[in-house]
């Protein structure tokens, strides 16, 4: 198990990490979230010794991570990097041997991975001859070729088309299913929501939210409430303390309510305004929890299901 223990890092005036701690467990998929500049990349790089921490430590199975441990780690950095003039197969074999594999077993593993990714026919192509999407696949393969126990991916979904996203999801699920501890950062919250067992949200270098996805939803003190109200949706006000209107559509009102809200009172209020066609009470989405955790006022957010790349993540 990987443990990030009280990590701290300061870059001049900027605090990148300020006491961040959490675990990445074998067989678990952990989504690592936070606005840009929250310190995600710094935390991930520190696992590989690419950042000297001002405080805290990275532990694996209870001891400080040593260079030898990193042979069993796989890393896909935010800024992708490969030897562009090197052939795909040779490149993967090379990275395998750098992780302590023999040439033969590294080459075999590269073959299998390329086959899985549908890139077998490109084994002899130079990386620079591949399309952007295929380069991304090779980059992932470079992180997987030595069959790591821990997989750390910085924005693995960025720049992928829907097919690429699905295939990435499948690979991550499959690795976690085989017992690999997987940790990845992303801004695509709906994707994380569907994929991850656990999420960590950091903001300004501090841990803002951490836990099992289901637990977090249940634990959340707010709920989503959706009321279908026909034409009355345009001007119905529930008029109950703590109940906020988030959005209105042509015939629906979307509300954010406390978990212990008096639902009957809201329903009564709605019924006096118009005919209630549907009344849905749900745990919050990850996106809502994210906004709450990083301190974006839910009311100021125009849409509940806002595209995370637009709403306040810059």
């Amino acid at each position: 198990m990987l443990r990030l223990d009280n990590l701290a890092k300061q870059y001049g005036e900027v605090t990148a990490l300020d006491g961040v701690s959490f675990d990445v467990k074998p067989g678990n998929l952990l989504g690592f979230l936070g606005p840009n500049g929250a310190g995600k990349t710094t935390a991930m790089r520190s696992i590989f010794g690419l950042v000297a921490l001002d405080g805290g430590q990275v532990l694996i199975d209870g001891h400080r991570v040593e260079p030898a441990d990193r042979l069993t780690f796989g890393y896909m950095p935010e800024q992708r990097g490969l030897y562009t003039a090197m052939k795909v197969g040779e490149q993967l074999t090379y990275f395998g041997t750098l992780h302590g594999m023999s040439r033969a077993s590294a080459a075999r593993s590269a073959d299998v991975l390329l086959e899985e990714m549908g890139l077998s026919d490109r084994i002899g192509s130079k990386v620079e001859q591949l399309s952007h999407g295929n380069q991304q696949r090779v980059q992932l393969a470079a992180a997987l070729v030595h069959d790591p126990n821990l997989l750390v991916l910085d924005e693995p979904f960025s720049g992928l088309d829907p097919i690429g996203v699905t295939s990435m999801e499948n690979i991550l699920r499959e690795r976690a299913g085989r017992g690999t501890a997987v940790m990845f950062s992303s801004h695509q919250l709906d994707l994380v929501e569907g994929l991850c067992d656990e999420v960590v949200i950091i903001n300004k270098g501090r841990l803002a939210l951490h836990g099992n996805m289901e637990d977090l939803r249940e634990r959340s003190r707010r709920r989503r409430l959706e009321v279908a109200l026909g034409v009355a949706a345009a001007d119905w006000e529930p008029g109950i303390v703590g109940v906020d209107v988030v959005k209105r559509s042509a015939n629906r009102v979307f509300l954010s309510v406390p978990v212990d809200v008096d639902l009957a009172a809201i329903l009564a209020s709605a019924s006096t305004a118009g005919i209630v066609g549907a009344f849905t009470f749900e745990p919050p989405t990850l996106s809502q929890m994210f906004k709450a955790a990083v301190g974006i006022d839910d009311l100021s957010a125009i849409e509940v299901d806002a595209d995370p790349s637009e709403a306040g993540l810059q």
Binding site: L50, P67, G81, L82, Y83, L98, A142, A143
Partner: peptide, 16 residues
Amino acid sequence: EEKTSRVVEVVLATVR
């Protein structure tokens, strides 16, 4: 080249 192609980050994740 290694620096601008950012491959250095991948290599230095295992190599000092």
